Computed example of a mutant assay.
Amino acid sequence: MEKLIQYSTPRSLLNKGTGFLAGYSHSLNPYTGCAFSCSYCYVRQMPVSVFRQAEWGTWVDVKQGASELLRRELQRAKKRGPVTIFMSSSTDPYQPIEYKERVTRSLLEVMVSDPPDFLLVQTRSPLVTRDIDLLKQLGSKVRVSMTVETDRDDMRKLFSPEAPPIQARLRALRELAAAGVPTQAAVAPILPSSEAFASVLREHVTRVVLDNFELGDGSGGKRTRRLGIEALYKPLGLEHWYGAQALDVLTKRMQVYFHEDELFISQKGFEP
């Protein structure tokens, strides 16, 4: 699907960390909108999407002048205390437009020259490996959190057909780890997976975060229910993967392969 690409000049980039991101001083979104168009994305129910008068996933705004703006805001923020940044909370910093626009890379260049206390890069795109040179320079001040909701690509195609294939994400995690970049797999949200999922992740990461719709959509699951996501499960007889019991099942499977200090549930796993 062709996306409407527009350009904007933001007045600010660093937003105060609140709610699910209260553990961070700031969130940072290089783009507004997201071309991956995941069916379950909680941002579909947020004002940035609701008041746009265009379907979420069909448009992306590119933030112009982002690097210089971040440079100034970062300097001011560091004078007030520790700066911890979650990138990104309402977009994917490595969605397809980043190949051309390189906004995210320009922001990383700023943070390499003036590092925050911690940066979490949340993405589902293998494009993140392009910036390994910069991520390595941030050392222990960065962690790349790769969304891997399942090991079944048929489920990926059902819930987020425009997002990158699962195997491509796993290869990206291997490449990042080989380069010494701290990583984690974010099973967020939990989608139907095979019994081998835990062992698959064990081959790629030493840190896993599990999150479901009830804990992770910022509204106790209300946003997800309004999206009607449960209807995607029913025709396949997968309703048992929709509720809280899915978290219990997957947690037990992961505990076979991951130690207590390697396995996290929801918000705690995303914190600095």
Rank of each mutant, 00 (worst) to 15 (best):
E2L: 12
L4Q: 15
L4G: 04
Q6V: 14
N15W: 00
L21E: 04
L21H: 13
L21A: 10
Y24S: 02
N29P: 03
T32I: 14
T32A: 13
C34P: 12
F36V: 05
C41K: 03
Y42N: 04
Q45M: 15
V48T: 11
V50I: 15
V50M: 15
W56M: 09
W59C: 11
Q64E: 12
L74W: 02
Q75R: 13
A77C: 07
A77W: 04
V83H: 00
T84H: 02
S88T: 07
S90P: 00
T91D: 08
D92Q: 02
P96N: 10
P96K: 05
P96F: 01
K100L: 09
R102T: 03
R102Q: 14
V103Q: 01
V103P: 02
V103S: 01
R105W: 04
L108S: 08
V110N: 02
P115R: 01
D117V: 02
T123G: 01
T123R: 00
R124N: 11
P126F: 06
V128F: 04
V128C: 07
T129G: 06
D131N: 07
D133R: 13
D133M: 08
L134Q: 11
L138S: 05
G139W: 13
S140M: 11
S140L: 07
K141Y: 06
R143T: 02
M146S: 01
E149K: 00
M155D: 06
R156Y: 12
S160M: 15
E162P: 00
E162M: 04
Q167E: 14
R171G: 01
A172D: 08
T183H: 02
V187H: 05
A188R: 01
L191F: 13
S194R: 14
L201C: 09
L201S: 06
R202S: 11
R202D: 09
H204V: 14
V205H: 03
T206H: 14
V208Y: 06
V209E: 13
V209L: 14
L210E: 12
S219K: 07
G220Y: 10
K222L: 15
R223P: 03
R225H: 09
W241Q: 12
W241I: 05
W241R: 09
Y242T: 01
A246W: 09
L250C: 10
R253A: 14
F258H: 09
E260S: 14
D261G: 08
I265Q: 09
Q267Y: 09
K268T: 11
P272F: 08
